[in-house]
Amino acid sequence: MSAPHAHAPLTQALPDLSRWTAYFRDAEIPVLASSAALLEEWRANEDAVDAHVIGEAVASDPLMTLKVLSFASSQRSSRLLADAETVTAALVLLGITPFFNAFGPQPTIEQRLGDQPEAFGGLQRVLRRAERAARFALGFAVHRTDPDAEVLHSAALLHDFAEMLLWCYAPQLALRIQHAQRVDPNLRSTVAQRAVLNIELGDLEQSLMKAWRLPELLTHITDDKRGNDPQVQSVRLAVRLARHTADSWGNPAVPDDLQDIGALLNLSAEHTLILVQDLDSGR
Results as ranks from 00 to 15, higher is better:
G104L: 12
Q116C: 12
A102R: 10
A119R: 07
N101W: 10
A90C: 05
S74R: 03
A89V: 03
N101V: 09
G95K: 02
L80C: 03
S70Y: 04
A134M: 08
V87C: 11
N101F: 08
S78C: 07
A133W: 04
V92S: 08
R128S: 09
A141I: 08
A130M: 01
L69T: 09
G121A: 15
L69I: 13
Q116K: 15
A90T: 06
G122N: 07
A90V: 05
L69V: 08
T86L: 05
R76S: 10
L123R: 12
A102H: 12
I96Y: 06
Q106L: 15
V87G: 09
T88W: 07
S74T: 00
S70R: 15
T108D: 11
Q106S: 10
V87N: 12
S77M: 09
S60D: 13
L127I: 14
A141P: 07
Q124W: 11
F100D: 09
D83V: 10
S74F: 01
L81H: 11
S60L: 12
T108F: 05
V142T: 11
G139M: 06
F103H: 04
E85C: 12
P107E: 00
L123Y: 07
L113V: 06
V92Y: 13
H143K: 13
T65A: 11
P107Y: 00
G95D: 02
P105M: 01
Q116N: 15
V92R: 15
P105I: 03
L138N: 08
G139K: 04
R129G: 09
Q116E: 15
G122A: 07
P62I: 02
Q116T: 11
R132N: 05
R135Q: 05
L80V: 09
Q75S: 02
Q116R: 15
G114A: 12
Q106F: 04
D61F: 03
S73V: 00
E110S: 09
P117V: 09
R129H: 11
L80Y: 12
A102C: 09
P62S: 03
F140C: 06
F71W: 15
A137W: 04
Q75P: 00
E131G: 06
